[in-house]
């Protein structure tokens, strides 16, 4: 009788122990975001304490002289990211509509894995493609073209002819965010109830009219979320952008200018930061700014997506 009872209590004990362990790990993983913010805040405190905010957002970046102005980097990040989104959004939405509404099962069975593959390609490989393909393309074709025909528009003035530019970064980033925008918007489009489409088709609308007036209207918030997710992915991307964007700390005024985005600053300056006072603090402040901006966007997008998907059910 005894051994059986011992075994039974051992099994119960194991079960309890395992459930406690799982709870601890689950709590840890849900607190990880806060943990990261706290650690970065802790490290960024010295520089926040010794400089007023206005000075930290000035455009003078000279760590050796103790000047840490983040404006060129924030501007650089915004330029590259916004350009990437302008390039990426139209083809992504069209492709997502095609895959969700028109494509045959067989076509989708080919395209979906390709999109997943695009998502799996490492960022340095994108970067290498940028250096070997996109940068020469910009340098040899787009810069001369802009000089010839577009020089009267300040946005396209090509004073930098190296090819390492916001445009090159934008193109590489755009291709990198294709998969996320396509797969999230396709999912959202598929979640639109079939009955809505049938009602529209039944009153004589064509397939495209149904998409335009019924499906897209219903899926709009979710598509917005897909775009925001793409935006925040592009905003934090480091290596691929760093390799093609030129890395000059200035406020850009044309898409052919070089820029220096925040993530590139963090990645590039790690070797030198230990020897200069407050430099490491400044870089971790940069990481904190990056993280906070991305968190706001991601949380927003996630809430919209949750709503959109729940309504679909």
């Amino acid at each position: 009788m005894m051994p059986g009872r011992v075994r039974a209590s051992l099994r119960r004990w194991n079960d309890l122990l395992a459930s406690r362990l799982m709870l601890v790990v689950a709590v840890f993983s849900s607190l990880l975001v806060i943990l990261i913010i706290a650690a970065l805040c802790f490290k960024a405190r010295p520089i926040l304490a010794s400089y007023p905010l206005r000075e930290l957002f000035s455009s003078s970046w000279q760590p050796l002289r103790g000047q840490f102005g983040f404006r060129p980097f924030i501007a650089g990040t915004l330029w590259v990211t916004v350009l990437a989104m302008i390039i990426a959004i139209p083809p992504c939405l069209l492709a997502a509509i095609y895959l969700a509404e028109y494509a045959h099962g067989r076509v989708r069975a080919i395209v979906r894995p390709l999109v997943d593959l695009l998502a799996g390609i490492p960022s340095v490989v994108y970067g290498m493609w940028g250096v070997l393909f996109v940068v020469p393309l910009v340098k040899d074709y787009l810069v001369p073209f802009a000089r010839e025909h577009l020089s009267f528009i300040p946005l396209f003035s090509a004073t930098n002819s190296s090819g390492y530019s916001i445009l090159a970064g934008g193109v590489v980033l755009a291709v990198m965010v294709f998969p996320i925008i396509i797969s999230v918007s396709e999912e959202v489009l598929r979640a639109v109830p079939q009955e809505l489409r049938e009602a529209s088709l039944a009153v004589g609308a064509t397939h495209w009219q149904t998409i335009k007036h019924v499906v897209l209207r219903r899926a709009l918030p979710g598509i917005g979320a897909a775009i925001i997710l793409g935006f925040s992915r592009a905003f934090g991307e480091t290596m691929a952008v760093l390799m093609v964007v030129g890395n000059v700390a200035q406020i850009p005024s044309s898409i052919f200018d070089p820029a220096y985005p925040l993530p590139a600053l963090i990645a590039n300056s790690y070797g030198e930061m230990m020897s200069i006072p407050l430099y490491d603090s400044a870089l971790l402040l940069a990481a904190l700014i990056l993280l906070l901006i991305i968190l706001v966007f991601t949380i927003l997008a996630r809430i919209v997506l949750l709503r959109a998907m729940r309504r679909a059910r």
Binding site: L32, G236, L291
Partner: peptide, 8 residues
């Protein structure tokens, strides 16, 4: 967390 960039 999935959205946090790898540099962070």
């Amino acid at each position: 967390l999935w959205g946090v960039p790898s540099i962070v």
